[in-house]
Design a protein around this nucleic acid. Sequence first.
RNA 1: GCCAGUGUAGCUCAGCGGUAGAGCAACGGUUUCGUAAACCGUCGGUCGCCGGUUCAAUCCCGGCCACUGGCUCCA
Length: 638
Amino acid sequence: MRAPITVIGAFSLGGLFPIPQGRGDFMSEAAKQPVERKTLDERNRMSDLERLRHSCAHIMAAAVLRLWPDARLDIGPPTDEGFYYDFDLASHRFTPDDFPAIEEEMKKIIKENQVFEKGVLARAEASDLFQSKGQSFKLERLADIPEGEAISIYRSGEFVDLCAGPHVMRTGNVKAYKLLRVASAYYRGNEKNPQLQRLYGTAFPNKTELEQWVTAQEEAKKRDHRKIGREMELFVFDDDVGPGLPLWMPKGAVILEELERLAKETEFAAGYERVRTPHLARESMYKKSGHLPYYAESMFPPMELHEAGGEGAAEAPRERYYLKAMNCPHHHKIFAASPRSYRELPLRLAEYGTCYRYEQSGELMGLMRVRSMQMNDAHIYCTAEQFAEEFRAVNEMYLKYFKIFGLDRFLMRFSTHDPARLGQKFVDDPELWKKTEDMVRRTLVESGINFVEVPNEAAFYGPKIDVQVWSVVGREFTIATNQVDFAVPGRFGLVYKTRENTEGTPLCIHRAPLGTHERFVAFLIEHYAGNFPLWLAPEQVRVLPIGEEQDDYGRSLVRELRAHGIRADLDASGDKIGAKIRSAETAKVHTMWVVGRKEQAAGQVAIRRHGLGDLGVRSRGEALALLQADIQQRGISS
RNA sequence: GCCAGUGUAGCUCAGCGGUAGAGCAACGGUUUCGUAAACCGUCGGUCGCCGGUUCAAUCCCGGCCACUGGCUCCA
């Protein structure tokens, strides 16, 4: 059960940055659905598709009950992708092998063309009904319904469910459906509750749409960054290194280098200064920062140093060091290292810092969720007066980046605190929370940026704006973040001399517009399906001599390209030209220069672009200039 | 961390109670070729790891590790 959120608007740059042909879109079909306004009042206003899927969930539950009469049912809502239903079933563990039987039973129910009948019951009646059926979860769900609110049930054939609806008219209206996977889910989404067995499925108005969806899912899997990353030799995971600890291979490292170059240029122009800090720090620092009580579970356990040569191994450690899970405390120490004047503010300290987080094993997912990560981090120390402008500048930096990458589907999420959890999840300073949240909200509204506001999602030290994107398999991730910190600078005793010669405590903005290398590259791989724009392409040019007699000419071309900083290689294999092209295409090499006798004689190259085919002959100088221009402007498609 | 599934050559996958196979890749040779696959040959695996059952285990059982799908959590 997700807390209801009010969607103020979904942010999209619309068609401003069309994704080039052949690259497609990085979002799943489901994720492409416009973000709908959903509030408590509107909860009942399901779309036709949701209504269909919800009805299909009932049909699936009815089928499960026919096959396993002791199943206890929880809830079965529609989702972006289809629907699910949660069951508690002591006698059986669902596996995908059960799908044919369940689908067959669903088919029968659909054929019976049962009417979905709505009924409104008195609480006692409903209670008796579900009591008699042994549906204890339904009784608990019933207790959630506030006094005075109507208790509605839906009946189709022998199946009865506590359900607000709405539904399609008849089971026969469900024309195309498919069970997708078995999963488990904690009852009421709480880790401390027992787990239920969840069956996921989907339904569409007709078979064609279902088939299209299935095909789209298969296509999406082909651009999964884990698959492409292996095929293109961008990164690997190794058991001996450890889960969630990626090794960047040469071709993957190229992408990191280019991203860092972009960040350094952008940040330099925006008045940032670069710093470098170690990967670990003493426990005392994290005690001071206040991270330990909030964050210890997400950090790798500390390294304990004992007295050298001491007899007793059991004695208390002399000191503890933690691998850093965030860069801020280190940066704060740099701020604190010199006396600061208001004249120096805003002070912007940037670092692509490497952090380590002990993510729970089940949460790891390729590069999207890892345990070691490099953050496009910076901390901006400023006065309250400077805050709005700094915060706005960060938001604009996002947009600048997103334009470069052609990223046009994302959601700005404004995370605020929950007053009920002050002092636990959030630092206990209600006034500052309100003040900073108001500042952030005003900044967003004034910039005309649409956003979603989500309570209870803030960092412990202040509100934040996250940019949400969707992986190719439809999972939502935060790709960038912009956070306010009104608490930690005070804990570190960070001060600056004001114009009035008093001491002020700076506000701090934590920002990572390019998120972490790991997640950002994962996202880019899927966004481009591995077909990176030239400036990012690991292998920019491959020179393909048609025969061995052109190998020397090819070598001279590669030498020239490399002298100009272009990543070029020669295919001097004995393959025929068709095979050379095929392997370059398969490797997603951005540009091929095919050279035979004619080109060699004329000092030319035949340009072939990955996915686009033969683009004709140019002089080697012209061909080089084209590449340079494209790289220099960081073109999206070229 | 929890639930479930999976783990066979670098990759994609067959196979099975009698100790392994294909395609691609790699390597060697022949071929010197005009825009997505020339031909021949060779190498390559303690079948994730540890233990148990058995005359015999890659196969059955148990534990562990990793991955995948979810849940929980997050950049």
